[in-house]
Nucleic acid binder design. Structure first.
Lengths: 197, 197
DNA sequence: ACCTGAACACCGTTCAAGT
DNA sequence: ACCTGAACACCGTTCAAGT
Protein backbone atom coordinates (compact mmCIF):
# COMPACT_ATOMS: atom_id res chain seq x y z
CA UNK A 1 0.00 0.00 0.00
CA UNK A 2 1.73 3.13 -1.27
CA UNK A 3 1.89 6.26 0.87
CA UNK A 4 -0.11 8.62 -1.32
CA UNK A 5 -0.92 7.25 -4.76
CA UNK A 6 -2.20 9.51 -7.49
CA UNK A 7 -5.36 7.47 -7.71
CA UNK A 8 -7.17 7.32 -4.42
CA UNK A 9 -8.59 3.91 -5.24
CA UNK A 10 -11.89 4.07 -3.43
CA UNK A 11 -12.59 7.77 -3.42
CA UNK A 12 -16.32 7.33 -3.83
CA UNK A 13 -16.83 5.25 -0.73
CA UNK A 14 -14.32 7.31 1.25
CA UNK A 15 -16.29 10.45 0.42
CA UNK A 16 -19.58 8.80 1.32
CA UNK A 17 -18.22 7.61 4.65
CA UNK A 18 -16.84 11.02 5.53
CA UNK A 19 -20.07 12.68 4.39
CA UNK A 20 -22.22 10.37 6.47
CA UNK A 21 -20.17 11.25 9.50
CA UNK A 22 -20.43 15.00 8.94
CA UNK A 23 -24.17 14.81 8.32
CA UNK A 24 -24.68 12.87 11.52
CA UNK A 25 -22.48 15.08 13.67
CA UNK A 26 -23.11 18.52 12.18
CA UNK A 27 -26.07 18.33 9.81
CA UNK A 28 -26.45 18.68 6.05
CA UNK A 29 -26.00 22.44 5.98
CA UNK A 30 -22.44 21.98 7.28
CA UNK A 31 -21.53 19.46 4.62
CA UNK A 32 -18.98 20.92 2.23
CA UNK A 33 -17.57 19.11 -0.77
CA UNK A 34 -14.30 20.97 -0.40
CA UNK A 35 -13.92 20.04 3.25
CA UNK A 36 -14.76 16.43 2.41
CA UNK A 37 -12.08 16.42 -0.26
CA UNK A 38 -9.55 17.84 2.22
CA UNK A 39 -10.50 15.22 4.86
CA UNK A 40 -10.00 12.44 2.37
CA UNK A 41 -6.74 13.93 1.10
CA UNK A 42 -7.71 14.77 -2.43
CA UNK A 43 -8.07 17.99 -4.41
CA UNK A 44 -11.36 19.84 -4.35
CA UNK A 45 -12.09 18.99 -7.96
CA UNK A 46 -11.70 15.25 -7.52
CA UNK A 47 -15.17 14.44 -6.09
CA UNK A 48 -16.69 15.61 -9.36
CA UNK A 49 -15.74 12.35 -11.10
CA UNK A 50 -17.96 10.47 -8.64
CA UNK A 51 -20.61 13.02 -7.78
CA UNK A 52 -21.38 15.59 -10.48
CA UNK A 53 -22.62 18.03 -7.87
CA UNK A 54 -23.49 18.35 -4.20
CA UNK A 55 -27.02 17.06 -4.70
CA UNK A 56 -25.71 13.86 -6.27
CA UNK A 57 -23.72 13.18 -3.11
CA UNK A 58 -26.78 13.84 -0.97
CA UNK A 59 -28.85 11.46 -3.10
CA UNK A 60 -26.21 8.78 -2.70
CA UNK A 61 -26.25 9.35 1.07
CA UNK A 62 -30.02 8.92 1.08
CA UNK A 63 -29.71 5.67 -0.79
CA UNK A 64 -27.16 4.16 1.58
CA UNK A 65 -29.40 5.44 4.38
CA UNK A 66 -32.30 3.36 3.11
CA UNK A 67 -30.03 0.36 2.80
CA UNK A 68 -28.91 0.74 6.38
CA UNK A 69 -32.46 1.35 7.62
CA UNK A 70 -33.60 -1.83 5.88
CA UNK A 71 -30.79 -3.80 7.49
CA UNK A 72 -31.58 -2.46 10.93
CA UNK A 73 -35.29 -3.16 10.61
CA UNK A 74 -34.56 -6.67 9.39
CA UNK A 75 -32.14 -7.35 12.22
CA UNK A 76 -34.56 -6.01 14.81
CA UNK A 77 -37.46 -8.11 13.57
CA UNK A 78 -35.40 -11.27 13.27
CA UNK A 79 -34.01 -10.89 16.77
CA UNK A 80 -37.39 -11.00 18.43
CA UNK A 81 -38.96 -14.34 17.53
CA UNK A 82 -42.20 -14.64 15.66
CA UNK A 83 -44.81 -13.16 17.95
CA UNK A 84 -46.69 -10.61 15.87
CA UNK A 85 -47.00 -7.88 18.46
CA UNK A 86 -43.37 -8.22 19.50
CA UNK A 87 -42.29 -7.87 15.87
CA UNK A 88 -44.51 -4.86 15.38
CA UNK A 89 -42.96 -3.15 18.37
CA UNK A 90 -39.43 -4.12 17.38
CA UNK A 91 -39.94 -2.59 13.95
CA UNK A 92 -41.23 0.64 15.43
CA UNK A 93 -38.42 0.86 17.96
CA UNK A 94 -35.78 0.18 15.32
CA UNK A 95 -37.23 2.84 13.01
CA UNK A 96 -37.33 5.42 15.76
CA UNK A 97 -33.84 4.56 16.89
CA UNK A 98 -32.53 5.04 13.37
CA UNK A 99 -34.43 8.31 12.95
CA UNK A 100 -33.26 9.82 16.21
CA UNK A 101 -29.68 8.61 15.92
CA UNK A 102 -29.32 10.35 12.55
CA UNK A 103 -32.04 12.96 12.09
CA UNK A 104 -30.34 14.80 9.26
CA UNK A 105 -29.95 11.59 7.28
CA UNK A 106 -33.65 10.81 7.67
CA UNK A 107 -34.47 14.28 6.41
CA UNK A 108 -32.26 13.62 3.42
CA UNK A 109 -34.08 10.35 2.78
CA UNK A 110 -37.41 12.15 2.80
CA UNK A 111 -36.20 15.15 0.84
CA UNK A 112 -35.82 13.58 -2.57
CA UNK A 113 -37.42 15.96 -5.03
CA UNK A 114 -37.27 13.74 -8.06
CA UNK A 115 -38.36 10.43 -6.61
CA UNK A 116 -39.47 9.16 -10.00
CA UNK A 117 -36.15 9.62 -11.78
CA UNK A 118 -34.16 8.28 -8.81
CA UNK A 119 -34.84 4.63 -9.53
CA UNK A 120 -32.11 3.22 -7.29
CA UNK A 121 -33.31 5.25 -4.39
CA UNK A 122 -36.92 4.24 -4.89
CA UNK A 123 -35.89 0.60 -4.82
CA UNK A 124 -33.76 1.06 -1.72
CA UNK A 125 -36.73 2.67 0.01
CA UNK A 126 -39.05 -0.16 -0.97
CA UNK A 127 -36.57 -2.75 0.29
CA UNK A 128 -36.42 -0.95 3.63
CA UNK A 129 -40.16 -0.72 4.04
CA UNK A 130 -40.78 -4.28 2.89
CA UNK A 131 -39.84 -5.38 6.41
CA UNK A 132 -42.75 -3.42 7.83
CA UNK A 133 -45.02 -4.80 5.17
CA UNK A 134 -44.15 -8.36 6.13
CA UNK A 135 -45.13 -7.67 9.71
CA UNK A 136 -48.46 -6.24 8.55
CA UNK A 137 -49.07 -9.33 6.43
CA UNK A 138 -48.38 -11.55 9.41
CA UNK A 139 -50.87 -9.53 11.47
CA UNK A 140 -53.51 -9.97 8.81
CA UNK A 141 -52.82 -13.68 8.50
CA UNK A 142 -53.28 -14.08 12.24
CA UNK A 143 -56.47 -12.05 12.21
CA UNK A 144 -54.98 -9.33 14.39
CA UNK A 145 -55.32 -6.72 11.66
CA UNK A 146 -58.15 -5.98 9.27
CA UNK A 147 -57.90 -7.59 5.84
CA UNK A 148 -57.38 -5.60 2.67
CA UNK A 149 -54.46 -3.90 0.96
CA UNK A 150 -51.58 -4.32 3.42
CA UNK A 151 -49.98 -1.11 2.23
CA UNK A 152 -53.09 0.79 3.18
CA UNK A 153 -53.39 -0.96 6.53
CA UNK A 154 -49.75 -0.34 7.34
CA UNK A 155 -49.73 3.28 6.30
CA UNK A 156 -51.47 4.53 9.43
CA UNK A 157 -48.87 2.86 11.60
CA UNK A 158 -46.01 4.02 9.42
CA UNK A 159 -47.26 7.58 9.59
CA UNK A 160 -47.56 7.41 13.36
CA UNK A 161 -44.07 6.00 13.81
CA UNK A 162 -42.59 8.58 11.47
CA UNK A 163 -44.49 11.29 13.34
CA UNK A 164 -43.17 10.11 16.69
CA UNK A 165 -39.65 10.31 15.31
CA UNK A 166 -40.30 13.83 14.02
CA UNK A 167 -41.72 14.94 17.37
CA UNK A 168 -38.69 13.54 19.17
CA UNK A 169 -36.24 15.15 16.77
CA UNK A 170 -38.11 18.44 17.00
CA UNK A 171 -37.97 18.39 20.78
CA UNK A 172 -41.75 18.38 21.06
CA UNK A 173 -41.60 15.03 22.82
CA UNK A 174 -38.85 14.27 25.29
CA UNK A 175 -37.24 10.82 25.28
CA UNK A 176 -38.85 10.03 28.63
CA UNK A 177 -42.26 10.12 26.96
CA UNK A 178 -41.26 7.73 24.20
CA UNK A 179 -42.16 4.38 25.76
CA UNK A 180 -45.54 5.62 26.82
CA UNK A 181 -46.26 7.19 23.44
CA UNK A 182 -45.16 4.08 21.62
CA UNK A 183 -47.34 1.88 23.82
CA UNK A 184 -50.30 4.15 23.23
CA UNK A 185 -49.70 4.22 19.49
CA UNK A 186 -49.41 0.47 19.10
CA UNK A 187 -52.43 -0.08 21.32
CA UNK A 188 -54.43 2.36 19.21
CA UNK A 189 -53.32 0.66 16.05
CA UNK A 190 -54.22 -2.81 17.24
CA UNK A 191 -57.52 -1.83 18.82
CA UNK A 192 -58.45 0.30 15.84
CA UNK A 193 -57.71 -2.41 13.33
CA UNK A 194 -59.12 -5.48 14.95
CA UNK A 195 -62.84 -5.29 14.32
CA UNK A 196 -62.68 -2.78 11.53
CA UNK A 197 -65.16 -2.54 8.62
CA UNK B 1 -43.55 58.42 1.00
CA UNK B 2 -40.09 59.21 -0.31
CA UNK B 3 -38.63 57.30 -3.25
CA UNK B 4 -35.70 55.64 -1.54
CA UNK B 5 -35.00 56.89 1.97
CA UNK B 6 -31.80 56.04 3.75
CA UNK B 7 -33.73 54.25 6.43
CA UNK B 8 -35.83 51.49 5.00
CA UNK B 9 -38.39 51.88 7.74
CA UNK B 10 -39.61 48.33 8.06
CA UNK B 11 -36.61 46.37 6.94
CA UNK B 12 -37.19 43.57 9.41
CA UNK B 13 -40.65 42.67 8.19
CA UNK B 14 -39.68 43.22 4.55
CA UNK B 15 -36.83 40.74 4.97
CA UNK B 16 -39.08 38.23 6.70
CA UNK B 17 -41.70 38.47 3.97
CA UNK B 18 -39.12 38.01 1.21
CA UNK B 19 -37.52 35.16 3.12
CA UNK B 20 -40.82 33.37 3.64
CA UNK B 21 -41.45 33.55 -0.08
CA UNK B 22 -38.03 32.19 -1.02
CA UNK B 23 -38.28 29.37 1.50
CA UNK B 24 -41.70 28.38 0.14
CA UNK B 25 -40.69 28.54 -3.50
CA UNK B 26 -37.10 27.34 -3.43
CA UNK B 27 -36.36 25.88 0.00
CA UNK B 28 -34.11 26.92 2.88
CA UNK B 29 -30.88 25.93 1.21
CA UNK B 30 -31.53 28.55 -1.47
CA UNK B 31 -32.11 31.32 1.04
CA UNK B 32 -29.29 33.87 0.87
CA UNK B 33 -29.08 36.92 3.09
CA UNK B 34 -27.33 38.84 0.34
CA UNK B 35 -30.00 38.03 -2.22
CA UNK B 36 -32.68 39.00 0.29
CA UNK B 37 -30.96 42.33 0.87
CA UNK B 38 -30.80 42.92 -2.89
CA UNK B 39 -34.49 42.06 -3.33
CA UNK B 40 -35.46 44.48 -0.63
CA UNK B 41 -33.15 47.17 -2.00
CA UNK B 42 -30.67 47.44 0.82
CA UNK B 43 -26.97 46.78 1.20
CA UNK B 44 -25.83 43.29 2.16
CA UNK B 45 -24.72 44.44 5.60
CA UNK B 46 -28.05 45.94 6.55
CA UNK B 47 -29.91 42.79 7.66
CA UNK B 48 -27.37 42.38 10.42
CA UNK B 49 -29.07 45.07 12.54
CA UNK B 50 -32.20 42.93 12.64
CA UNK B 51 -30.84 39.41 12.38
CA UNK B 52 -27.33 38.91 13.78
CA UNK B 53 -26.84 35.91 11.51
CA UNK B 54 -28.61 33.60 9.11
CA UNK B 55 -29.84 31.33 11.87
CA UNK B 56 -31.54 34.24 13.62
CA UNK B 57 -33.55 34.89 10.48
CA UNK B 58 -34.50 31.23 10.24
CA UNK B 59 -35.60 31.23 13.89
CA UNK B 60 -37.76 34.27 13.23
CA UNK B 61 -39.28 32.53 10.21
CA UNK B 62 -40.09 29.52 12.37
CA UNK B 63 -41.80 31.74 14.90
CA UNK B 64 -44.01 33.49 12.37
CA UNK B 65 -44.70 30.05 10.96
CA UNK B 66 -46.11 28.88 14.28
CA UNK B 67 -48.20 32.03 14.49
CA UNK B 68 -49.65 31.41 11.07
CA UNK B 69 -50.20 27.72 11.79
CA UNK B 70 -52.09 28.64 14.94
CA UNK B 71 -54.26 31.08 13.04
CA UNK B 72 -55.05 28.57 10.34
CA UNK B 73 -55.92 25.83 12.82
CA UNK B 74 -58.14 28.24 14.74
CA UNK B 75 -59.92 29.41 11.61
CA UNK B 76 -60.46 25.85 10.41
CA UNK B 77 -61.91 24.69 13.71
CA UNK B 78 -64.15 27.71 14.11
CA UNK B 79 -65.52 27.37 10.60
CA UNK B 80 -66.90 23.92 11.18
CA UNK B 81 -69.43 24.19 13.99
CA UNK B 82 -69.08 22.33 17.25
CA UNK B 83 -69.37 18.68 16.34
CA UNK B 84 -66.36 16.98 17.88
CA UNK B 85 -65.48 14.67 15.02
CA UNK B 86 -65.86 17.44 12.45
CA UNK B 87 -63.53 19.65 14.44
CA UNK B 88 -61.02 16.85 14.82
CA UNK B 89 -60.96 16.32 11.08
CA UNK B 90 -60.83 20.04 10.33
CA UNK B 91 -57.77 20.39 12.56
CA UNK B 92 -56.02 17.52 10.86
CA UNK B 93 -56.83 18.80 7.39
CA UNK B 94 -55.67 22.31 8.24
CA UNK B 95 -52.40 21.02 9.69
CA UNK B 96 -51.70 18.88 6.65
CA UNK B 97 -52.62 21.68 4.28
CA UNK B 98 -50.16 23.99 6.05
CA UNK B 99 -47.44 21.36 6.06
CA UNK B 100 -47.75 20.46 2.39
CA UNK B 101 -48.18 24.05 1.19
CA UNK B 102 -44.91 25.03 2.83
CA UNK B 103 -42.79 21.97 3.59
CA UNK B 104 -39.54 23.83 4.08
CA UNK B 105 -41.14 26.12 6.64
CA UNK B 106 -42.45 23.15 8.61
CA UNK B 107 -38.96 21.68 8.62
CA UNK B 108 -37.68 24.97 9.95
CA UNK B 109 -40.28 24.92 12.70
CA UNK B 110 -39.21 21.44 13.73
CA UNK B 111 -35.51 22.13 13.36
CA UNK B 112 -34.96 24.38 16.34
CA UNK B 113 -31.86 23.12 18.09
CA UNK B 114 -32.09 25.28 21.16
CA UNK B 115 -35.77 24.99 21.95
CA UNK B 116 -35.16 25.88 25.59
CA UNK B 117 -33.42 29.19 24.97
CA UNK B 118 -35.89 30.19 22.26
CA UNK B 119 -38.64 31.26 24.60
CA UNK B 120 -40.67 33.20 22.03
CA UNK B 121 -40.67 30.29 19.67
CA UNK B 122 -41.67 27.86 22.37
CA UNK B 123 -44.65 30.04 23.21
CA UNK B 124 -45.66 30.42 19.57
CA UNK B 125 -45.60 26.65 19.22
CA UNK B 126 -47.72 26.16 22.30
CA UNK B 127 -50.26 28.69 21.07
CA UNK B 128 -50.51 26.83 17.78
CA UNK B 129 -50.99 23.45 19.38
CA UNK B 130 -53.44 24.73 21.96
CA UNK B 131 -56.11 24.51 19.25
CA UNK B 132 -55.57 20.78 18.97
CA UNK B 133 -55.60 20.46 22.72
CA UNK B 134 -58.99 22.12 22.94
CA UNK B 135 -60.44 19.63 20.51
CA UNK B 136 -59.02 16.77 22.57
CA UNK B 137 -60.56 18.25 25.72
CA UNK B 138 -63.93 18.46 23.99
CA UNK B 139 -63.63 14.83 22.97
CA UNK B 140 -62.90 13.82 26.53
CA UNK B 141 -65.79 15.91 27.88
CA UNK B 142 -68.15 14.18 25.46
CA UNK B 143 -66.82 10.75 26.38
CA UNK B 144 -65.52 10.13 22.86
CA UNK B 145 -61.91 9.95 24.06
CA UNK B 146 -60.38 8.25 27.04
CA UNK B 147 -59.89 10.42 30.14
CA UNK B 148 -56.46 11.36 31.45
CA UNK B 149 -53.78 13.86 30.51
CA UNK B 150 -55.07 15.46 27.31
CA UNK B 151 -51.55 16.08 26.06
CA UNK B 152 -50.85 12.38 26.26
CA UNK B 153 -54.14 11.46 24.60
CA UNK B 154 -53.59 13.96 21.81
CA UNK B 155 -50.00 13.03 21.16
CA UNK B 156 -50.82 9.86 19.23
CA UNK B 157 -53.06 11.81 16.87
CA UNK B 158 -50.58 14.63 16.54
CA UNK B 159 -47.82 12.19 15.67
CA UNK B 160 -50.01 10.52 13.07
CA UNK B 161 -51.00 13.79 11.44
CA UNK B 162 -47.42 15.00 11.38
CA UNK B 163 -46.38 11.65 9.93
CA UNK B 164 -48.98 11.86 7.17
CA UNK B 165 -47.65 15.29 6.26
CA UNK B 166 -44.08 13.95 6.18
CA UNK B 167 -45.10 11.01 4.00
CA UNK B 168 -46.86 13.35 1.59
CA UNK B 169 -43.95 15.75 1.44
CA UNK B 170 -41.54 12.88 0.96
CA UNK B 171 -43.55 11.52 -1.93
CA UNK B 172 -44.18 8.23 -0.12
CA UNK B 173 -47.89 8.90 -0.20
CA UNK B 174 -49.51 10.53 -3.20
CA UNK B 175 -52.21 13.17 -2.67
CA UNK B 176 -54.85 10.78 -4.02
CA UNK B 177 -54.31 8.54 -0.98
CA UNK B 178 -54.72 11.38 1.48
CA UNK B 179 -58.47 11.28 2.12
CA UNK B 180 -58.41 7.54 2.62
CA UNK B 181 -55.39 7.69 4.91
CA UNK B 182 -56.89 10.50 6.93
CA UNK B 183 -60.19 8.62 7.31
CA UNK B 184 -58.33 5.52 8.42
CA UNK B 185 -56.21 7.49 10.89
CA UNK B 186 -59.11 9.28 12.50
CA UNK B 187 -61.13 6.08 12.65
CA UNK B 188 -58.20 4.32 14.33
CA UNK B 189 -57.80 7.15 16.78
CA UNK B 190 -61.47 7.23 17.75
CA UNK B 191 -61.89 3.46 17.94
CA UNK B 192 -58.65 3.06 19.82
CA UNK B 193 -59.50 5.69 22.39
CA UNK B 194 -63.12 5.00 23.16
CA UNK B 195 -63.08 2.08 25.51
CA UNK B 196 -59.46 2.39 26.50
CA UNK B 197 -57.99 1.21 29.82
C1' DA C 1 -9.91 6.55 -16.25
C1' DC C 2 -8.94 9.56 -12.58
C1' DC C 3 -7.11 13.59 -10.34
C1' DT C 4 -4.96 18.60 -10.02
C1' DG C 5 -5.16 23.49 -9.74
C1' DA C 6 -6.44 27.98 -11.49
C1' DA C 7 -10.55 30.61 -12.29
C1' DC C 8 -15.26 32.46 -11.60
C1' DA C 9 -19.21 33.89 -9.25
C1' DC C 10 -21.27 33.49 -5.19
C1' DC C 11 -21.77 33.22 0.04
C1' DG C 12 -21.85 34.69 5.50
C1' DT C 13 -19.70 37.59 8.64
C1' DT C 14 -17.16 41.59 10.40
C1' DC C 15 -16.48 46.39 11.07
C1' DA C 16 -15.13 51.13 10.29
C1' DA C 17 -17.44 54.81 8.35
C1' DG C 18 -21.29 57.44 6.89
C1' DT C 19 -26.31 59.75 7.65
C1' DA D 1 -30.49 54.22 15.59
C1' DC D 2 -29.81 52.42 11.14
C1' DC D 3 -27.42 51.57 6.88
C1' DT D 4 -23.14 51.39 3.50
C1' DG D 5 -19.23 49.27 1.45
C1' DA D 6 -14.66 47.24 1.65
C1' DA D 7 -12.50 43.16 3.38
C1' DC D 8 -11.86 38.24 4.64
C1' DA D 9 -12.39 33.45 4.40
C1' DC D 10 -15.11 30.26 2.63
C1' DC D 11 -18.18 27.87 -0.90
C1' DG D 12 -19.87 25.05 -5.53
C1' DT D 13 -18.85 24.54 -10.17
C1' DT D 14 -16.14 24.48 -14.44
C1' DC D 15 -12.40 23.00 -17.23
C1' DA D 16 -7.86 22.68 -19.26
C1' DA D 17 -4.02 20.17 -18.05
C1' DG D 18 -1.49 16.53 -15.96
C1' DT D 19 -0.54 11.18 -14.76
Amino acid sequence: MPGRPYHHGNLRSALLAAAERTVRERGVQDLSLRELARDVGVSHGAPRRHFPDRQALLDALAETGFDRLGDELRTAVDAVGDDFEARLRATAVAYIRFATADPALLDLMFAVKHREQAEHLQQAAERAFSVMLEVILQGQAEGRLEPGDPERVGLVLFATIQGIAALLNGGMVVPEQLDELLDDSIAHFLRGSRTAV
